[in-house]
């Protein structure tokens, strides 16, 4: 996200100065993000038209980008506005929660950021000590021996703690699914 901000901002600044190659990279990259963002909310077919409209808006309103501010926030502001406009026209529910720009840039084809966020949400349900262990071993790839040394626990109790934590998260997921 931070790398994307730097990359897109650099393309945008070059484009504002008249660099067509940078502008092409910018628009092609944004097309990918926007397609994912709208497809998730409007369906793939409707998304294409809105992507097109949003690209035109980005082009027409590019002078309103203030180079001292984040580019991703600017693009997200436009994308969200066009989404609300689409809802209004379709007489659908016309409120879109004020999310962060991450909503747009998390919508890339891979959805990697979205997955990561879901995992973090789930992890937040664990107590601090267990959460740190699960994150270190299962997400960051630390060894059980290292974590045992760091926390002063035995290797066996690290293993048991992680196992129990994952089991309780599994039950959490199973439970919420059964509710539906």
């Amino acid at each position: 996200m931070i790398q994307q901000e730097a990359q897109y901002r650099a393309w945008m600044l070059a484009a504002l100065a008249g660099d067509a190659a940078a502008y092409r990279m910018l628009l092609q990259g944004l097309t990918r993000h926007l397609r994912g963002y709208y497809a998730k909310r409007l369906g793939a077919a409707a998304a294409e038209d809105v992507v097109q409209e949003t690209l035109i808006a980005i082009h027409a309103k590019r002078a309103t980008y203030d180079p001292t501010r984040p580019f991703t926030a600017w693009v997200y502001g436009i994308a969200r506005y066009k989404l609300m406009d689409e809802y209004r026209r379709g007489h659908r529910k016309a409120t879109v929660p004020l999310e962060e720009a991450g909503e747009l840039f998390g919508a890339d084809e891979a959805e990697a950021a979205g997955t990561r966020r879901d995992v973090e949400k789930l992890l937040a349900k664990l107590p601090q000590a267990k959460r740190d262990l699960v994150r270190a071993i299962k997400l960051d790839g630390q060894s059980i021996a290292d974590e045992a040394a760091r926390t002063g626990m035995s290797e066996t109790s690290v293993k048991v703690t992680v196992h129990r934590a994952l089991k309780s998260l599994g039950e959490e997921l199973g439970g919420s699914n059964a509710d539906r």
Binding site: L16, A17, A20, I56, H59, A63
Partner: peptide, 29 residues
Amino acid sequence: SSSETSANALDLMVDRLVADLRPVESPPV
């Protein structure tokens, strides 16, 4: 095939917008 044609439409759109690019004078707001 429909996503292919629309992808082409979007590529065309990008082409048109790139062709229309002019440097922006500061501070227009």
